[in-house]
Amino acid sequence: MDSTIACGFPSPAADSKENSLDFNELLLKHKSSTYCLRASGRSLENSGIQDGDILIVDKSLSPRNNDLVVAEYQGGFTAKRLKIQGDNIFLHPECDDFEDIIISEKDSFSLFGVITGVVRTYRN
């Protein structure tokens, strides 16, 4: 498409042109290993994650103590704060109405990925 014909003085900033902010650059550090999941429930309320939020989950990161993670626990997905104390692993909720989940060896448990961001929109 042809753009408008410039007349008058050339912009003094033309040489300093940079691309606009790109949310992919901010939120998707590892595009191919990042999945989006939708949160449902209240157990992370105090961490700021609310019902309906979109969780950005990066599978390429190694989980560390105190990371917010998505885990597969007893045949379902759950999101909690990961606590590693010695050999013990806890899934810690961020809401007073919920209890810690202590992972025992006989549980079916695996980490799906680390939550690296949350997206919420207020008006569409």
Partner: peptide, 8 residues
């Protein structure tokens, strides 16, 4: 509209 759901 089709995102997988995670129970929190």
């Amino acid at each position: 509209t089709d995102l997988p759901i995670v129970k929190i």
